[in-house]
Simulated assay, not measured.
Amino acid sequence: DAVLHFGGRSLEAPFEQLMHANIQGTYNLYEGVHKRGIRRVIYASSSHAVGYYPTTRRIDADSPLRPDGLYGLTKCFGESLSRYYFDRFGVETVCLRIGSCFPEPRNARMLATFLSYDDFVELVRCALFTPRVGHTIVYGVSDNRIAWWDNGKAGHLGFVAQDSADAFAERFPFGGAWPAADDAGNFQGGPFILAGPQYE
């Protein structure tokens, strides 16, 4: 009835490695889904498809893609590929732009990007059982007070996060000094924007 596609490399890596897992692998999966007549895919995209937005900007599903590295770029490919397979063949996809899915936030950035395990499971359930999803992009994030992402365009999924990073906020107090203008902390992708290829 559906495929949950959570395979691939989830960190920045040389392009050859990302290409085989995240580009060729995703294409192979969609070809297989189409040929077998499967009608829905839940695709593990990433917030790094839009990681070059500043942390001062709130974005939604219609905001232009701004990948923060080669890994994020491969997720942009997957989202575009899934759009093509919906438009051309009617294969529905929910693209989950996952933030930071861990038991607890690990750093200050995750006060905005945190997605609890329970909220993650509920998001996948909603993506699987909503009667019609078409091609939906939804941000995988809990109900955090610091919010960079607006899920208003995915309201038809019925996903309501129950957890929040706020309970852990005291672990990461604000030190009173804002990042320098070129600091990775100014971008939603955080350190991922510095993890890709560096050119002189």
Rank of each mutant, 00 (worst) to 15 (best):
H34K: 15
N107I: 03
G72S: 04
V138G: 04
V94S: 06
A61F: 07
F192C: 01
Y52F: 14
G78A: 14
A180N: 08
D60E: 09
S164G: 00
N22E: 02
A181T: 00
Y199R: 11
L81H: 06
G134H: 06
P54D: 12
I59L: 05
S100L: 07
T55D: 12
A21F: 06
R66N: 12
P173E: 05
T26R: 03
G134Y: 04
Q24W: 12
A184W: 12
E170P: 03
E200G: 13
S80W: 15
G176F: 05
Y84W: 09
G152R: 01
M110Q: 15
V141E: 01
C95Y: 04
G189S: 03
G176M: 09
Y71R: 01
G152S: 08
W178P: 10
P131F: 10
N107A: 02
G175F: 01
I137D: 03
R83G: 11
D1A: 14
H48I: 02
S142I: 04
P105F: 05
I38G: 06
G185W: 08
Q24M: 15
H20W: 03
A169S: 10
G152P: 03
L81C: 03
G7A: 15
G190Y: 09
G37P: 05
S116M: 08
D143K: 08
V33H: 02
D68S: 09
S63F: 15
E200Q: 12
G176I: 04
A154F: 09
E104H: 12
A13G: 08
T136A: 02
R109G: 04
P64E: 10
Y27L: 15
P67N: 06
G99I: 00
L70G: 03
R132Y: 14
L96H: 01
Y30V: 06
Q162R: 15
F172E: 09
P67S: 01
F77Q: 04
P103D: 13
V141Y: 00
R145N: 08
L194G: 09
G175W: 08
H48Q: 13
K35E: 13
P179C: 02
V3K: 03
C126T: 04
R145C: 05
A165R: 08
S46W: 07
H5A: 05
A44F: 08
T55C: 13
H5W: 11
R83T: 14
